[in-house]
Nucleic acid binder design. Sequence first.
DNA 1: AACAAATATTTCTTATAGGAAACAAGAGCA
DNA 2: TGCTCTTGTTTCCTATAAGAAATATTTGTT
Lengths: 217, 217
Amino acid sequence: MSDEPHFLKQATADESETKAMRIARKSATEATLEPLQLGQRVRAIRLSQNLTLEEASKRTGLARSTLSKIENEQISPTFSAVNKLVHGLGIDIPQLFAQPRTGASAGGRRDITRKGEGKPHPTPTYEHELLATQLTQKKMVPFRTRVHTRTFDEFDEWIRHEGEEFLYVLSGEILFYTEFYEPVTLNEGDSAYYDCTMGHALVSTSEQDAEVLWVTA
Amino acid sequence: MSDEPHFLKQATADESETKAMRIARKSATEATLEPLQLGQRVRAIRLSQNLTLEEASKRTGLARSTLSKIENEQISPTFSAVNKLVHGLGIDIPQLFAQPRTGASAGGRRDITRKGEGKPHPTPTYEHELLATQLTQKKMVPFRTRVHTRTFDEFDEWIRHEGEEFLYVLSGEILFYTEFYEPVTLNEGDSAYYDCTMGHALVSTSEQDAEVLWVTA
DNA sequence: AACAAATATTTCTTATAGGAAACAAGAGCA
DNA sequence: TGCTCTTGTTTCCTATAAGAAATATTTGTT
């Protein structure tokens, strides 16, 4: 993992950011990751369940007016509000943060992802490359992951979430830790299927980072 | 800021077992109070990347003070703030919203399939090797397939069934035919996600049989 | 210890989210 | 037509998140 460039630190005169810079930075970041129309998605989900704002309000514990404003993208809900939404209505989590992109027509959907052209999503422990991100509303979420963890200590807690997961080792050797089993070594071509509610974690035991294919449902 | 004095860089299975158990116990007890400790997680991630609040601030575009408050759970960040966090630092999405389910309720199923040890299922066109066959009642059905079809003529009709399918090319080159699209060439590392109700078929265009990984849901 | 530099927290202000209620638009129905 | 019920939007006010700057804390060095 690359460190923060040090040359940033020795700037003394440049330390103070001009207002112009700040504004530029602000609009830059917001431009790149703001097109996240949460509202549209919430409305679509609510309507698909034939719920009125009032009913959705009851389920989520959010005021009718608040829901309306969220759906019309007049406000950016707080984390706790999003949580209520997610749990109140059943919202597909991974999709929430994925870029929507204009999906194909309803009938025969198809999405091709070329090697290395998925959507990168690095984390401290894994380096994910999300596949088939053009399609939303999928049953499965596929991604290719580079495991650069080398010791189990690098995890501060189990990874644990809803659903089931299929794992296939593309290259390298990994140690597959699970909460209720002995850790097991997996080599290229080996695979595993498991309950995600059970804590799990991967560690690369090979020279290079191991690469795995993961599919969650 | 030097690295943590981890004297043993390679964790043996035994040492990790200890840690694994500790974590298991910890998360089990914490499950009682579950106000979704986003802050703790953010802090853990930031520190694991050896970032200061200032550096994290630069990456995320959030004020230093805001980050501090989020980490100390003094505020509930807005959705857009969470987004900046998620993208700025790499945060594992499903983790964020997943209820910290206690391990107790978790049906911890797991099934390992070694390379080549799946259940063979040959057909005239494909040679499937079903994976994770020990487990029943799965949401997904994963299998590794050797494609020895060489021309599209060998299919007398479209393959078509319920559900969605994810396809990943392990080796060789294939031509991916679908009912509503032009056929497309896929090479090793490419992948596709599609509606199975749409007719589909694979043909190997490489010297040897191509190999693909398939997951159906 | 004393100091300086780096890092984190708190305070204060402004911007904005959330909720209650008013308002608007529409759909029956007498 | 007027009335009422339902649903979604808007207004207004309060609660609270976000940012800037001040303050506190930690860390490293002599």
